[in-house]
Nucleic acid binder design. Structure first.
Lengths: 203, 203, 203, 203
DNA sequence: GATGAATGAGGGTTCATTCAT
DNA sequence: GATGAATGAACCCTCATTCAT
């Protein structure tokens, strides 16, 4: 990778961290420059504006999710195992990419304004959703899943249960007076899998 | 209510809207003043600082949730019906108080920093969680629920499934190319109830 | 003293402290109110404006100096003793009324703008200067002082040597790395008396 | 000097004037920018804050004094002439650098707070004080000065007599109803020299 | 005589951004 | 490709002051 590309990369990574920690309006261009060990001018050179930088970060976050989903190989696993693997994968991805959550929350705050400004992101389609459809169909075929369900809803449920837990752990901890990390996390992982499985299993 | 209190109230409501739409750092004090039909100075008169204002908004959002939960009367409903009512209640509260979601997201962004600065919010305890415990115990007693579950997990699941759907509808719509409002919303409501019921029902 | 007058008095004293510590532009009306255990509105009630308050403080400071000078009884002391008494008096007054120094400095900063706005202060005349004139004349008459000197210059010298020392002790201490209080102060007192005496004594 | 340095210099000069005329809290950043023919932002670019700017001004004032003192060449003058030269030098420096007085007064107001924040000013030592020590020692050696005096006191006396006169001329003029500039100034210069000489001269 | 509520103007400071080199 | 200097607009906040009661 050329030096120039390295600079660009460093800025992008720094921006991901900064926006993840402070949000879009709270994230300072100056801080990005400092974290990236570059200078502000370079940010404008490579990304045109703060908004441009944010969109690049957004694209990167989505792309990483997309690539990770794409790497999933569950075509031949038994349907129930595949479902459990999906749960694990989702939770792990959120835990290892915490920046994703806050950056997506920011997008929600702005009602998806920046996603729609990106040319790259027009309908990436979700590999995981496609996968879930296949798994579900196979499960029904094999008689382990009950028919008539919507794979989208199953998929969204997995996202929801994990997203909420990881995203809200700080306020929930404060509100409920519990520590949601550690042992609780393991229990939650098992509980989510169980919920989803019970939701789809035949009889 | 005195005129002074009305002014305070107007500011608080305006701030709730503004912070809900733009976040904490994106929310402008000037805008709050304009929306409240007051002036900037009064904000500092009543709330000391922008941060003080945000904390007041946060307290208000929590209090409203707490009051709504407290008004729930499900002590004598059949356990399964009570569960379904909880799902409905949660989803409805989120839909009618959309400001809650973004404001809580902001709190999560800052890792609960402002909740912990509030004196009023130290452990409000959640009436809904208590209620869920009672419902669950009764359900087990009556033999309709299977035993050995954690009411907290059941409760969090209801929150998660609804929170995610309402909070992320804009990015999900864009990402998946669907409209999650309208008919889809009704289906989701039914699906959440079904998931939770299946998770807790005896056999 | 009526309650009303007490309030006025408390405000005036508080203002003297506040202006002495922070200067005119640095002194906050709010702080004066707090220190006086009253409220801002009362300040405007009694003094019309911040400037009016400052002028009242200024008048007070001058009046106290004037009264103290007026109480000096040195008409019958031997001239040399009288001179020494003047030195002591001046230094002591500065030490016991440190607010005077900063408030006068402030006046100097503004080139005497506020003195000239006061109706009460138009030419109070200085009792101490008059006294010095008498002492000097007597000293010449008695042959202990040399003739041809200007009592004003003698008087100003006493002021200068004491004013400077008390007023600048903080910066001088920092600049020269010395402690000008304590023992040094005693030596200075003696030195000033000696200087003045040597300046006026015949041969 | 580079253009950038010129900008910095212009701001510093402007700030010296503004703080000298209005004090620290009375001095407006906006005014500094206007006088410097620059803009407010540059002040923060070069000096970080209003306080930083004030400290820079303070350092500059001290440095100028230090340099001027350093340029004094009185090693070979007859001791009495040297003393008189010191008096002239001090008075002239105050007259040509009137900003020094108000800025130092401000420092005194704040009890030397800003001097102690400066890294550059930790003990510059005073060339003039060193010089005075040498002059005094030589004077004693040559038998023209009486022994047993403290050069610091002699030096401070010169400062005091001149500082007071220049610094307080506005209030004194108003208070005493005199004009202290013009002819009076010449007389004062002579008087100060005479006082100091009489204080140190043998017999 | 005393107080809480309200206000406009302006305070210092920081923001994202662009100009030169 | 990289950097220091410069900028205008806007930010949060505080000021002295006045309006009602």
């Amino acid at each position: 990778m050329s030096e120039a590309q390295q600079t660009r990369e460093r800025i992008l990574r720094a921006a991901t961290d900064v926006f993840a920690q402070h949000g879009l309006s709270g994230g300072r261009v100056k801080l990005v420059a400092r974290v990236a060990k570059s200078n502000e001018r370079m940010i404008y050179y490579y990304f045109r504006s703060k908004e441009g930088l944010f969109i690049a970060v957004l694209e990167n976050v989505y792309r990483q999710m997309w690539e990770a989903e794409n790497a999933l190989e569950l075509d031949r696993s038994p349907p129930l195992d595949a479902i459990r693997a999906m749960v694990d994968f989702t939770l792990d991805h959120y835990l290892t990419h915490p920046e994703m959550l806050t950056i997506l929350n920011n997008e929600n705050l702005h009602r998806g304004r920046y996603v729609s400004k990106s040319k790259k992101m027009k309908r990436l389609s979700s590999p995981a959703l496609d996968l879930m459809s296949k798994i579900y169909d196979r499960g029904v075929e094999e008689g382990v899943f009950r028919s008539g369900l919507d794979p989208l809803q199953i998929y969204l449920s997995i996202l929801a249960l994990n997203y909420f837990y990881v995203s809200n752990r700080y306020t929930l901890s404060a509100y409920l007076g519990l520590d949601l990390a550690g042992e609780q996390l393991k229990l939650w992982r098992r509980w989510v899998a169980e919920m989803v499985v019970r939701a789809v299993k035949a009889n």
